[in-house]
Computed example of a mutant assay.
Amino acid sequence: MPTFNVQTNVPLDDCVLVSDILKQTSKAVANIIGKPESYVMISLRGGVPMLFGGSEDPTAYGELISIGGLGPEINEQLSAALAEILQTKLSVPPARFYIKFYDVKMTDFGWNGATF
């Protein structure tokens, strides 16, 4: 259910261990939201042309969608944890990363040929 889609202008080349980023992000989302990691999906797109504040320095934008489990305190924890991962792994400063949170109804999320 929890799905985190993130795009960045940082190229995902051989220097970046994409698998590590995906696994670390998946664990963080599952732990903070309190849902099984078996339901978490992470998508990472690198090398996306992006401009933030008039600069092409490393930046990122993410959207986290979940059926429940989100709210002011949880969103703040997620924002801090995800920004830390992006800063550590991709050199994206926390001040150059936006994240949008979506708490959706069960009927708005499809899986296995049906909705939840």
Rank of each mutant, 00 (worst) to 15 (best):
V92R: 05
G34S: 06
P94K: 13
L22S: 06
C15H: 14
T8P: 09
P72C: 12
V104T: 13
R96M: 09
K89M: 10
F109E: 05
L78M: 14
F109C: 09
A114G: 11
A83C: 11
E37L: 00
A81V: 01
D57W: 00
L22T: 08
Y61H: 13
F97A: 07
M41F: 04
I32N: 04
E84N: 15
L70G: 07
L70H: 03
E63K: 10
G47H: 07
A95P: 00
M1R: 08
L51D: 01
Q87K: 15
F101E: 05
D103F: 00
Q24C: 11
P94D: 03
E56K: 15
T8S: 14
G62T: 01
L70N: 01
P72S: 15
T3V: 13
M50R: 03
A28R: 03
L82H: 03
V16K: 12
E37V: 14
K89C: 09
T115N: 12
N112G: 13
K100I: 12
K100D: 10
L78D: 11
L70M: 07
T59N: 13
S19I: 07
M1S: 14
K27M: 05
F97N: 03
T107D: 15
I85C: 06
I74A: 10
G34Y: 05
L82G: 02
C15M: 08
F101Q: 02
E73C: 00
A80Y: 07
G53L: 12
N112V: 05
I99M: 15
V10H: 07
G34W: 04
T107Y: 13
P94Q: 08
V10Q: 11
V48K: 02
